[in-house]
Design a protein around this nucleic acid. Structure first.
Length: 420
RNA sequence: GUGAGUGUAGCACAAUGGUGGUGCACCAGAUUGUGGAUCUGGGCGUUGUGGGUUCGAGUCCCAUCACUCACCCCA
């Protein structure tokens, strides 16, 4: 081999693609039911967009982005997440003017240069939604309802919705300061990672897996104690709305999100059987300052992203489903082969999936291939049939054969396959 | 970025330092114009790569690459 696929980048082979398509089809229908339209934004953006929105000191921006200078000297980055691009498009095309409430969804590849492991790739796929222009908690509930319903429709087992509120810029700043203060006093009882986190990401310490840290932070101040009146009311409304819809959730005051832009409502869909590693299958939250941050008008927003590979891992295995022809054409001899080619072409033009042998051997051989292809019928055409002007149609399941004159062949196959 | 594990046929796996095998899959035949079962036969490996130790290395040592898993981080 001259070379291989890039580390952490996977081919989706023909045997895998049906389940991707099934997922995508279900997602499109569902988002349309919930009033979201598709948006397709570029895979590359100016580096500054991500640096600004995700947060310059986040791990993603600091060490995981595929960032490069193109031949013209522009700083370009392969998108590591989807929200920034959508928000950029929203502001750039001034959608706030024509569509004060913008509800969109997207699906596509994202790129982060991390060490690959289970459920973590360098090119991975996300399906996400963004709802811009609504600050009321009702939209939070709708977005969460769509997320929960998606998992329901896909029959994903063993997931839990966890929610929290990070407050607005003001109350979070107050909380962060209080937490930092608390952690500094506990430094000695924290793991080395958490000692580092005090400066880089104090909230993260609440989420630490080490027992030492869990004990040390047991009586740490909680965000919920620092929410101001509006943020508290917003969170209460969201919970009330979820209750009204009968949506189960866990309030998780220690839940932390990685991206800087989140405010108020945040949430994750967690695979409960995977304690620890890569258990977040979907995550999102409100980002009320983001549009303004990148130069648009002050606009509230909320959204989430689903990790497609992580979701696929927990879906029930379904049969292969696609790719079987309805008719296999077994032709023996040069004259018959030319006839077979024409027959295949006619059937395909009628929308009947037809396959044939490009390097036909004997009939036995072709029957084997017909069987393996999963075809429902096989059209057998040899010298005898050419002479008689009629083909043999074999029902592969019942093994019954009928002779059909060439001039009625396409019509007859149409009738036979209609009932499939 | 840190740590650990694994690299043998298309796939799944064996092989005490002494001639690299088995199953599945594949191809052919038994059945010369009829598929799934059965039987018989067939091909395959530069044992990831490069060094070293040894009379002799798939096996031991070193390096390197790839993959996997965990940490970090995150979808």
């Amino acid at each position: 081999m001259l070379t291989q696929a890039i580390k952490g980048v996977k081919d989706i082979l023909p045997e895998d693609s049906p389940k991707w398509r099934r997922l995508e089809d279900a997602v499109r229908k569902l988002f349309s039911d919930y009033g979201f339209s598709e948006i397709r934004t570029p895979i590359i953006e100016h580096t500054v967009l991500f640096a600004r929105s995700i947060g310059a000191t986040s791990d993603i921006v600091e060490k995981e982005m595929y960032a490069f200078k193109d031949q013209g000297g522009d700083e370009i980055t392969l998108r590591p997440e989807g929200t920034a691009g959508v928000v950029r498009a929203y502001a750039e095309h001034k959608l706030f003017a024509s569509r004060p409430v913008t509800k969109v969804y997207y699906m596509g590849p994202m790129f982060r240069r991390e060490r690959p492991q289970a459920g973590r790739l360098r090119q991975f796929h996300q399906i996400g939604v963004e709802a811009l222009g609504v600050s009321e908690p009702g939209i939070d509930v709708d977005v969460l309802a769509a997320l929960v319903e998606l998992f329901g429709r896909l029959e994903a087992q063993g997931v839990e919705l966890h929610i929290n509120s990070l407050g607005c810029k003001d109350c979070r700043a107050a909380y962060k300061a209080a937490l930092k203060d608390f952690l500094m006093r506990k430094t000695d009882s924290l793991c080395p990672d958490c000692q580092r986190r005090i400066e880089t990401n104090p909230l993260r310490a609440l989420d630490c897996k080490s027992e030492r840290c869990k004990a040390a932070t047991a009586d740490a101040p909680m965000m919920s104690e620092y929410l101001d009146g509006d943020c508290r009311a917003h969170f209460e409304s969201v919970k009330q709305g979820l209750d009204d819809l009968g949506i189960q959730y866990v309030v998780d005051p220690r839940m932390v999100r990685g991206l800087d832009y989140y405010t108020r409502t945040t949430f994750e869909m967690i695979a409960v059987d995977k304690q620890g590693a890569q258990n977040a299958v979907a995550a999102g939250g409100r980002y009320d300052g983001l549009v303004e941050e990148i130069g648009g008008p002050s606009t509230p927003g909320i959204g989430f992203a689903i990790g497609v590979e992580r979701l696929l891992m927990m879906l029930p295995e379904a049969g292969n489903g696609a790719g079987s022809p309805q008719v296999y054409i077994a032709a023996i001899g040069g004259r018959a082969e030319r006839f077979g080619q024409k027959l295949a072409d006619e059937l395909r033009k009628c929308g009947i999936p037809a396959e044939r042998d490009y390097s036909p051997g004997g009939l036995k051989n072709q029957m084997k291939k017909a069987d393996r292809s999963g075809a429902s019928f096989t059209a057998i055409i040899g010298e005898d049939e050419m002479a008689r002007g009629a083909a043999i149609i074999r029902d592969m399941k019942s093994r019954e054969q009928t002779e059909v004159r060439f001039d009625r062949l396409v019509e007859e196959i149409k009738t036979l396959t209609r009932s499939l």
